[in-house]
Nucleic acid binder design. Structure first.
Length: 412
RNA sequence: GCGGGCAUAGCUCAGUAGGUUAGAGCGCCAGAUUGUGGCUCUGGAGGUCGCCGGUUCGAUCCCGGUUGCUCGCCCCA
């Protein structure tokens, strides 16, 4: 048995799994570009405060899941557990210029120290979309639409449903929070143990508790939208109207509360029942206070992140890998000529593999395993005649083709 | 951090009511076929039965612990 394993919750990505993930990223990249989002890539580690401050010191992500370390210069750094705060830091650092809004697309690894399970890893990958500097509800609409279009293009739209909610602006949210805490405090004794601690740390989370007793209590709890001021109501109405106008189906889930502290107004989640316990596939919301919280100029923001592994698992089929042409020298005397032929075909744009050793039979077997369509056999006889034997590995038929018409033969 | 399931060949898995050399299919290597894969046949390599300890004359099998994987809780993409 192997003694050297990848670190728990990390995986080597190869073959079909890698192709699935690349397909997810490429699809998202193309569509984001079509919507006018620019691709950016930020460092995978940052000063730890970049995440600790906006996410909240008491949040699980910061208090128990972040990979934090001190570097040789004594700085407290963290492997990024999410993209949004890092994007905002880059914005404050001046990476994206001054013209607002900026529309950003990114994809890459994130790190959280958690118990791995289906659809959850310690190093996982996310696609990230952010719009910074747009306070308009139509920005929320576009951002959600972009997510919906990507899910459609991936062919997973039927597996997924959009849930939408609003937390209201900070004033409304705070008013509601007080009312909720007061209500829950009256029922504290009947709440589950988890929800009693939620009540201390993040009372809104009690709303989406899975515990049945909690659900009964929550059913009677005050409703968020009754605490909305006019502005919050109008904002939410515009987002919903925009989604209707674009034909994007959603259901309002008044108990949809995103976990991270920085959300205001719109929150949303695309979820599936096809992935076991980790149903959330793409989720985000508006975070108008985040950039200010980080010490930047008050700038509104809205965005989402999608789990690449989760999307890759939903893909019905894996993309095919390129089918190579394999060049096979017959006998040692033709090796160099065969290698030169391979180079020539590569220069012409073909995917060409050249094995380094083995008898003709072994090389052909290998070529078939690689999924090659053609094997090109080149021996002394063919060299002398200026020909190449083109063997169709699917049909089993082969024919000698003059070098001059080889390109045309392979094209057909 | 808490709970359940699983751990035998490269892969998927069988097995021994505790007993001498632990099996299959697929894969791998070689040969039949010294310039031809996929079919067929023959032969071969490959295992500290996850690890440590206990019970026993004897443990891959029973018991305890441990590690890993996996699924769930918390939390989240």
């Amino acid at each position: 048995m192997t003694s050297l394993r990848p670190v728990r919750g990390t995986h080597d990505l190869v073959g079909e799994d890698l192709r699935r993930q690349r397909h997810v990223i490429e699809t998202a990249r193309q569509i984001a570009e079509r919507y006018g989002y620019q691709e950016v890539s930020t460092p995978i580690f940052e000063f730890a405060e970049v995440f600790a401050r906006p996410l909240g010191e008491t949040s699980d992500v910061v208090s128990k899941e972040m990979y934090v370390f001190t570097d040789r210069g004594g700085d407290q750094l963290a492997l990024r557990p999410e993209y949004t705060a890092a994007m905002c830091r880059a914005f404050i650092s001046g990476a994206f210029g001054q013209a607002l809004p900026v529309k950003l697309f990114g994809a890459g690894p994130m790190f959280r120290y958690e118990r791995p399970q289906k659809g959850r890893l310690r190093q996982f990958h996310q696609i990230d979309i952010e719009v910074l500097g747009a306070a308009e509800p139509l920005a929320d609409v576009e951002v959600i639409a972009l997510g919906a279009r990507i899910l459609q293009a991936l062919g997973v739209a039927d597996e997924v449903a959009l849930e939408l909610n609003s937390l209201g602006d900070p004033v409304s949210r705070q008013a509601y929070r007080s009312a909720l805490v007061a209500y829950l405090a009256d029922h504290r004794a009947n709440l589950s143990a988890d929800s009693q601690t939620r009540l201390e740390r993040n009372p809104l989370r009690v709303l989406d508790s899975k515990d049945e007793g909690d659900r009964a209590i929550v059913a009677e709890a005050p409703l968020l939208d009754t605490y909305f001021n006019e502005e919050s109501q109008a904002f939410f109405a515009e987002v919903k109207a925009g989604l209707h106008a674009l034909g994007i189906a959603f259901t309002v889930n008044p108990k949809l509360v995103r976990g991270l502290d920085y959300y205001t107004h719109t929150t949303f989640e695309f979820t599936t029942t096809a992935l076991g316990a980790q149903g959330t596939v793409l989720a985000g919301g508006r975070y108008d206070g985040l950039i200010g919280m980080l010490g930047g100029p008050q700038t509104p923001g809205i965005g989402w992140a999608a789990g690449i592994e989760r999307l890759a698992m939903l893909l019905a089929t894996a993309p095919e890998s390129a089918r190579p042409v394999v060049v096979v020298p017959v006998g040692p005397a033709s090796e160099l000529a065969a290698l030169a032929l391979a180079e020539e075909l590569r220069a012409a744009g073909h995917v060409v593999d050249y094995g380094f050793r083995g008898k003709v039979g072994q090389r052909l077997k290998r070529a078939a395993q690689q999924g090659a369509r053609y094997a090109l056999l080149l021996g002394e006889d063919e060299l002398a005649r200026g020909e190449v034997v083109v063997r169709d590995l699917e049909q089993g038929a082969q024919e000698a083709v003059p070098r001059s018409s080889l390109a045309a033969r392979l094209a057909g």
